[in-house]
């Protein structure tokens, strides 16, 4: 087993919601509820789950943009330059008022003074790495298509020589043909530079293609974790099963006539007692009214011995 680069230990995060007349919060939104996660050097770890499951909040915690309410985040790398992020929407993640070479080298000149010439040389080098022609450096983001913009965002992430890159739905806003280009690029960069990826996505097929390990999140908790193939081919937790069944697959017409489940997420203001998934679970019984613990990579009493 490789050494860990980041370890999360019982991380909890809650946000105050509303305030009474004395400024005390009326309630808390529980974004993360006890996360334990060990990210190893050089792996690609996928994070899947539906909106509101806390996967983007997890990214913020990992990057140190948000501090956990409880629990510890242990980094084996200094966080400033060693971790970078690529966002979902390449339209809004690039400042339209900056030329490309400035955008790419922003992580450098934001912290240290460099001459224009040095920055441009570095920008040209990075542009080449992500498959952009050097002529584009003087242009502005609105002149580029979504895929090219995402390449620019990746070049920016690479410019501070990071060890870890958090990819927050990097291809969700892209077309299929472009998605393939970007995924290949990410793969190449990982091979060349020995990067560690934290790949957040709702797209199971992308996760399956890219990741070594996968984490399934539900309501701010990890419900299942394991090798990518193991989890996605033989899901054990009922939620993982539901998620995988719901993903549309090619050439399975008629699948839509299957039974209907309750799809409403419980509120994260008042967390359910016991298993978080019990209201939607077909296997729920008395044992599920107990808080579930993570055992053998799955948080469900039906599957842990």
């Amino acid at each position: 087993m490789n050494e860990p680069v980041i370890e999360l230990c019982e991380v909890e995060l809650k946000f105050p919601v509303g305030a009474d007349w004395r400024g005390r919060p009326k309630a808390y939104a529980h974004a993360l509820n006890g996360l334990n996660l060990r990210i190893e050097n050089g792996e690609t770890i996928g994070v899947v789950g539906e909106s509101g499951c806390g996967k983007s909040t997890l990214a913020m915690i990992l990057l140190g943009l948000v501090q956990p309410t409880n629990g510890k985040v242990m980094r084996q790398v200094e966080s400033a330059s060693a971790m970078q992020i690529v966002f979902q929407d390449p339209q809004s993640s690039l400042n339209t008022r900056m030329p490309i070479w400035r955008i790419i080298t922003e992580p450098i000149f934001a912290r240290t003074k460099r001459s224009k010439h040095q920055l441009r040389t570095k920008a040209a080098e990075l542009a080449k790495k992500v498959g952009l022609r050097p002529e584009v450096l003087d242009r502005f983001p609105h002149e580029f298509s979504g895929g090219q913009r995402q390449r620019i965002a990746i070049a920016r992430a690479l410019s501070s020589d990071p060890k870890i890159i958090v990819l927050d739905e990097p291809t969700s806003a892209l077309d299929i043909s472009v998605q393939a280009q970007i995924l290949n690029l990410l793969d190449d960069l990982k091979q060349q530079q020995g990067l560690t990826y934290i790949f957040i996505s709702h797209d199971i097929s992308v996760i399956r293609h890219m990741c070594d390990r996968v984490v399934v999140m539900y309501l701010g908790q990890i419900v299942e974790i394991g090798r990518c193939e193991a989890v996605l081919d033989n899901p054990r937790h009922p939620y993982t099963k539901l998620l995988l069944e719901s993903v549309p697959k090619m050439q399975q017409a008629g699948d839509l006539d299957a039974s209907l489940e309750n799809t409403e997420l419980p509120s994260n203001r008042n967390l359910p007692l016991g298993c978080f998934f019990q209201e939607r679970c077909s296997l729920a019984d008395e044992a599920c009214s107990q808080l579930q613990t993570m055992q053998d990579g799955v948080r469900c009493n039906k599957f842990s011995k």
């Binding site: 399956r208 890219m210 090619m250």
Partner: peptide
């Protein structure tokens, strides 16, 4: 387009992009 889908390629292989 069909070939570019991640599910149409085996893991570890490069995706066929357009």
């Amino acid at each position: 387009l069909v070939r570019a889908l991640p599910e149409s390629s085996t893991k570890g292989q490069r995706l066929e992009s357009i």
